[in-house]
């Protein structure tokens, strides 16, 4: 079966999805403080890599990368609450793009599998 990544339309679609997703994250008062850096370009690239990974696209993300990348936000107090919010925005984004609930569930499952790495546990 085609991955969600392929169903969305591959890399170009991920770019559009990333903007939707990143906008939701930045607009969330609970999450915004973790994204205070002005380097939106670097951030959006990371979001695109994350979306590629959780939708089953080609990526080189490893658990170690996730730990390193999130060390600073963990130090700033990122917790399960924040992780859940990100997963919720991810689901909302995919819903807006017409992805079925079942597939969103699959994607959320992949996201859940990296919770420990992201929160550095």
């Amino acid at each position: 079966m085609a991955s969600v990544y392929e169903q969305l339309g591959g890399a170009p679609a991920i770019q559009a999805a990333t903007e939707l997703f990143y906008r939701k994250v930045l607009a969330d008062d609970d999450l915004a403080p973790f994204f205070d850096s002005i380097d939106m370009d670097a951030q959006i690239k990371k979001q695109a890599a994350f979306l590629t990974m959780v939708t089953g696209g080609p990526n080189q993300y490893t658990g170690r990368d996730l730990r390193t990348a999130h060390a600073k936000v963990v130090a700033k107090g990122a917790s399960d609450l924040h992780f859940d919010l990100v997963v919720k925005h991810l689901g909302d984004t995919l819903k807006e793009l017409g992805v079925s609930d079942e597939l969103i569930g699959t994607v959320a499952g992949v996201a859940q599998s990296v919770r420990g790495d992201v929160l550095n546990r």
Partner: peptide, 10 residues
């Protein structure tokens, strides 16, 4: 950032 949040594409 504000324009992006308001709906402009980066």
């Amino acid at each position: 950032r504000s324009l992006f949040l308001a709906g402009c594409s980066l």
